[in-house]
Simulated assay, not measured.
Amino acid sequence: MIRVALLAGSMLAAAPLAAQDHSAHGAAARPQPDMDHCAMGHLPPEQCPPKDEPEPDTGTDDEMVGMDHSSHGGMSDKSAPGAAPENALPPRALEGPRHAADVVWGEAAMVPARNQLARENGGMTTGMVLVERVEARIAIDGGEDGYLWDAQGWYGGDINRFVLKTEGEGEFGGALKDAEIQALYSRAIGPFFDLQAGARFDPEPDSRTHLVIGIQGLAPYMFHVDGALFLSDRGDLTARLEAEYDQKITQRLILQPRIEIELAANGIPEREIGSGLTKIEPGLRLRYEVMPEFAPYVGVEYEAKVGETADLARLAGEDPDGLKPVLGLRAWF
């Protein structure tokens, strides 16, 4: 009898548990895969569908297999249908004032501040003087020791500048051989190049003026280039091309290869210049920057007159080429 009472009590306790509704548990817990509670005996038979009826088709298998996924790769706009694309500019972005600071400080106060900002960040006027070369040249072939200068200065802004150039050479204790002064208007035609035009005056070896048009700037691979065409008041057309490169050995020690080439469209007998390629001057200088603005250097320069100009030099009893050690200074301020 005791065993029968215990068995009846356990059956009465299990009946309410079996009748509990578990359908709401999935909303609070992690979703579980579909389970056949009828096959597991969890539900009474009257709540189970007939075994000969097919199970409802959810479409999760066949429809997924038959779906066309080819268009997924071209989907770039994830916004809702009819909405503006993600990269569109919201209309409210243009509703405010052009300068938001005017709302706080007032236009009268901000206009001078904006003009000052533009002037101090590229629009201001400034200047510089660069003494590229001032050097003594030592003759090792029995000639005369000489000197040379090459300097330029400019004043203006980033776009428009006035440029003044001068260069020349002579012999110690002797006459001045060549000298020239150029006054140029310089206009930036790109981030790294300026177009220059103006006039050139040569006081030596004979007084002569030229029209000048040229280009100056920084070529790819950090080559500094300066090229110009010169048309004299006597109809002579000449050209000059200079290029140099600063190779840093240390932060202060810099090796600079340099080359200068001169050409003439016609012969200039009074200056002992023939037509074609007239002169080439490759050189190598090693400078030490005591400070960036002050750098003494030593080097060597090879000067060679070529073509008809070399023939004219030989007829005059001169050596058309020669190698000269140089000692000089580069400075700017």
Rank of each mutant, 00 (worst) to 15 (best):
residue 6 L to W: 08
residue 8 A to M: 15
residue 14 A to H: 12
residue 15 A to E: 15
residue 16 P to I: 11
residue 18 A to C: 11
residue 22 H to L: 15
residue 28 A to V: 13
residue 29 A to V: 11
residue 30 R to P: 14
residue 31 P to F: 09
residue 33 P to M: 08
residue 36 D to T: 07
residue 38 C to K: 02
residue 40 M to F: 11
residue 41 G to Y: 08
residue 42 H to E: 13
residue 42 H to M: 15
residue 47 Q to T: 10
residue 48 C to H: 07
residue 50 P to I: 09
residue 58 T to S: 12
residue 60 T to P: 03
residue 61 D to L: 12
residue 65 V to D: 15
residue 66 G to I: 10
residue 66 G to N: 13
residue 67 M to K: 05
residue 69 H to D: 14
residue 72 H to M: 15
residue 73 G to C: 12
residue 74 G to C: 08
residue 76 S to E: 12
residue 82 G to Y: 08
residue 83 A to S: 15
residue 83 A to H: 13
residue 83 A to E: 15
residue 85 P to G: 06
residue 86 E to I: 06
residue 87 N to Y: 06
residue 90 P to Y: 02
residue 91 P to V: 03
residue 94 L to R: 04
residue 100 A to K: 03
residue 101 A to Y: 08
residue 106 G to Q: 02
residue 108 A to V: 08
residue 110 M to C: 02
residue 111 V to Q: 14
residue 111 V to C: 09
residue 114 R to C: 13
residue 114 R to T: 14
residue 115 N to R: 10
residue 117 L to M: 14
residue 119 R to P: 06
residue 121 N to R: 03
residue 123 G to L: 10
residue 123 G to S: 07
residue 123 G to D: 10
residue 124 M to Q: 11
residue 126 T to P: 01
residue 128 M to K: 04
residue 133 R to P: 06
residue 137 R to P: 08
residue 140 I to Y: 08
residue 140 I to M: 13
residue 141 D to V: 03
residue 141 D to Q: 05
residue 142 G to W: 05
residue 142 G to L: 04
residue 144 E to A: 11
residue 145 D to Q: 05
residue 145 D to F: 04
residue 149 W to L: 02
residue 150 D to E: 12
residue 153 G to Q: 02
residue 155 Y to R: 02
residue 162 F to D: 05
residue 163 V to G: 05
residue 163 V to A: 07
residue 164 L to T: 11
residue 165 K to R: 11
residue 166 T to R: 00
residue 168 G to P: 08
residue 171 E to F: 01
residue 174 G to M: 05
residue 184 L to N: 05
residue 185 Y to C: 09
residue 187 R to E: 15
residue 189 I to G: 10
residue 191 P to G: 13
residue 192 F to K: 07
residue 192 F to W: 14
residue 194 D to A: 00
residue 195 L to M: 08
residue 201 F to V: 10
residue 202 D to C: 03
residue 205 P to K: 00
residue 205 P to W: 04
residue 207 S to I: 10
residue 210 H to Q: 06
residue 210 H to E: 10
residue 213 I to H: 04
residue 213 I to Q: 06
residue 214 G to Y: 00
residue 228 A to N: 01
residue 232 S to P: 01
residue 236 D to H: 06
residue 236 D to K: 01
residue 237 L to G: 04
residue 237 L to D: 09
residue 239 A to W: 03
residue 239 A to T: 09
residue 249 I to M: 03
residue 249 I to D: 01
residue 250 T to V: 04
residue 250 T to H: 02
residue 254 I to E: 01
residue 255 L to S: 01
residue 255 L to Y: 01
residue 256 Q to L: 04
residue 257 P to C: 03
residue 260 E to I: 04
residue 262 E to H: 05
residue 265 A to D: 10
residue 267 G to V: 07
residue 268 I to E: 02
residue 268 I to M: 03
residue 269 P to R: 00
residue 270 E to D: 15
residue 278 T to I: 03
residue 282 P to I: 06
residue 283 G to H: 01
residue 290 V to E: 12
residue 292 P to S: 09
residue 295 A to S: 14
residue 302 Y to I: 15
residue 304 A to V: 13
residue 309 T to L: 03
residue 310 A to M: 04
residue 310 A to D: 08
residue 315 L to I: 14
residue 315 L to Y: 09
residue 317 G to Y: 07
residue 318 E to R: 01
residue 319 D to N: 07
residue 322 G to M: 09
residue 322 G to V: 08
residue 325 P to I: 07
residue 332 W to K: 00
residue 333 F to K: 00
